[in-house]
Design a protein around this nucleic acid. Structure first.
Lengths: 161, 161
DNA sequence: TATTGTTATACTCTATAACTATA
DNA sequence: TATAGTTATAGAGTATAACAATA
């Protein structure tokens, strides 16, 4: 994917198809963060294949698996979304037999979330694919720089979040 | 913002509010990319203040300013979105007097996009705020590492995109 | 009174497909 | 036939507010 010549083409008809100038955007971390994130999202979706299991759902399954019994409110907090947005997502995951929702013994207002066996199996499968996807990212970032790269991303999230 | 103790708290009632384990997610570049991007997005929105001028619109204004006269299709290609999604966004920007849409002289199917004076003025204002926001990101990433960080993000976008 | 989860509602962003007007 | 832009439509994701059940 070599770069186009990118001469300033002072033709009066405006910039050619691909040779669009980014101007100040090219120095903005936030801009590139978005572009990279979108590319990563698309690549993940393409590799995982299941159009119903986007990164968001994958993260939900992982969080439930890693924190068995957590409540919806806790899950919402952990993923930075309002509890009301989880209802349809979990409805879907329950309907697909991946997640179990049970009343909490001690507090009957809340539910405990757990993966079913099928959920764990699917998650294992997805985790493997996600690892492949991430291996690609590793290669791009450079294996030795990965840790530092993630550290920066975390710092951004923690400091700005 | 020191790290929480993060002891494995083997309490039976499930993970406490904040101490949610990320499991394999913590090693996934893609996951942290999303979190960081969301944090950056929110911080940008908070600093720019105008709820009608999210990063997306800001990028559109910049692209038009940097590439005066470009067409909607070209703009769509440059920002990786279908042309149909630009219609409402541009309608809004035109209605607010920030963008001019004129028929192209040579090809009367297409429009040429330019900023109005008001558009340029607002963009200058926004660019200044975006620069402040990005300065914050600079500080977080580390000024010397910024270039390398952006290079990685671009590499991700180009390779996966 | 406060909290958990659901529901109703609305808004934004996105894409696809069909359409028009030009080419 | 092909392309630029619009419109109609639909889907996903999100938030806020009001609500029922429980604390």
């Amino acid at each position: 994917m070599a770069k186009r010549p990118a001469e300033p083409t002072a033709k009066a008809e405006g910039p050619a198809d691909d040779a669009v100038r980014l101007g100040p955007l090219s120095n903005l971390v936030g801009f590139h963060l978005r572009i990279a994130q979108e590319a990563s999202f698309r690549a993940f979706a393409a590799r995982v294949g299941d159009p119903n299991l986007k990164p968001r759902r994958f993260a939900i399954l992982t969080l439930i698996s890693e924190n068995p019994g957590l409540t919806q409110t806790a899950l919402g907090r952990a993923s930075g979304r309002d509890k009301s947005t989880l209802t349809p997502a979990l409805d879907d995951l329950v309907k697909r037999g991946l997640v179990k929702r049970d009343r909490a013994a001690n507090d009957r207002r809340s539910y405990t979330l757990n993966l079913t066996q099928a959920g764990e199996a699917l998650l294992a499968e997805l985790t493997a694919r996600a690892a492949e996807h991430d291996a690609e990212l590793d290669r791009i970032v450079g294996p030795e720089q990965k840790a530092e790269f993630i550290r920066m991303l975390r710092r951004i999230a923690m400091t700005l979040g």
